[in-house]
């Protein structure tokens, strides 16, 4: 939408200068992302900005899905399986985060109890808590509780990485979804209570449907957090994901670099997809995903 109110008074020239400036600052990003994707369709890396090294091919993608690391090499990597593993973690994180924060966020927004304000501040603090200080002990607990049966241990490692990663996202998600609950008029909740509903019922049947955009927002953030994760997955998960696949193959890659570009592009795809689909939501609520 145009900022109609400012149209008459703002200077077109300054605007063009500003656009150019922001564009220049964005150039490294644009080039980085663009050339990665382009390289995945080329027989040679095009990151050197030399158009002559671009020779179009889809071999990289075929090799990637065939699980071969290079044209010649014999090592097999089940990339489809890795993608599924990544998705399992991401969906799991999203599920846990949504369930937990939607419950706690409601209580924080709508129920009065002693220490409520203090707890809310503590939750905010938890979000800024040094994750690296936690991961040592979280891993210690993991080792101590790991089942000895290998199949069970694999499943356990999935469950553990999901909940452990979700735990990092939950504080901010509670704050975010609380904001959405805050905006639902009290009268609607009171109406339901006068109609005879318990708080659990009000929550489920009246409040949840009214904060759907908020649920979507925290679900997307949590999904992306689970999807992008490297540290937790490499620390806890027995199976490989796309992140650990790329991480561990960076050194092998010299034989056939563009294949890794294809893997990276594949890994990037859902992120980009979410970006296009939920641009507005992300721009408005993205203060949630605070990293470096």
């Amino acid at each position: 939408m145009m900022q109609l109110w400012d149209v008459e008074v703002k200077s077109r020239k300054i605007e063009i200068v500003l656009i150019l400036a922001v564009f220049l600052a964005s150039l490294p990003l644009i080039l980085n992302y663009g050339l990665l994707i382009l390289s995945s369709f080329s027989t040679e890396m095009v990151t050197n900005l030399d158009p002559t090294s671009f020779r179009p091919t889809i071999d990289n993608w075929i090799l990637l899905f065939e699980g071969r690391l290079s044209v010649t090499g014999g090592v097999r990597e089940d990339v489809v399986r890795y993608t599924i593993n990544t998705a399992i973690v991401a969906l799991g994180v999203a599920g846990v985060v949504v369930l937990v924060s939607v419950m706690a966020g409601y209580a924080m927004s709508r129920m009065n109890f002693k220490g409520r304000s203090l707890i809310m501040q503590m939750i905010l603090l938890l979000h800024a808590f040094p994750g690296v200080a936690l991961i040592i002990a979280v891993y210690l607990i993991f080792r101590a509780t790991l089942p000895s049966d290998i199949e069970l241990a694999r499943i356990y490692s999935f469950a553990y990485v999901i909940v452990a990663r979700a735990a990092l996202e939950i504080p901010m998600s509670i704050w975010l979804i609380k904001g959405f609950f805050d905006r639902v008029p009290w009268e609607v909740e009171w109406a339901a209570i006068i109609d005879g509903a318990s708080r659990l019922r009000v929550w489920r049947e009246v409040m949840l449907p009214m904060v759907k955009p908020g649920i979507a927002a925290i679900a997307i953030f949590a999904f992306l957090a689970g999807w992008e994760d490297l540290i937790y997955v490499r620390t806890f998960l027995f199976d490989r994901t796309l992140a650990t696949y790329i991480e561990s193959n960076i050194n092998v890659e010299f034989a056939y670099m563009p294949l890794l570009a294809a893997a990276g592009t594949l890994y990037l795809l859902p992120t980009i997809l979410f970006f296009i689909l939920t641009q507005r939501l992300l721009l408005e609520t993205s203060t949630g995903g605070i990293k470096g």
Partner: peptide, 20 residues
């Protein structure tokens, strides 16, 4: 007594219908 045990009907100033 909590509201649900009073059997009152309340019509709110802003109606407070369940929009969904």
């Amino acid at each position: 007594l909590p509201p649900r045990e009073r059997n009152v009907g309340l019509v709110f100033q802003n109606y407070a219908l369940y929009p969904h």
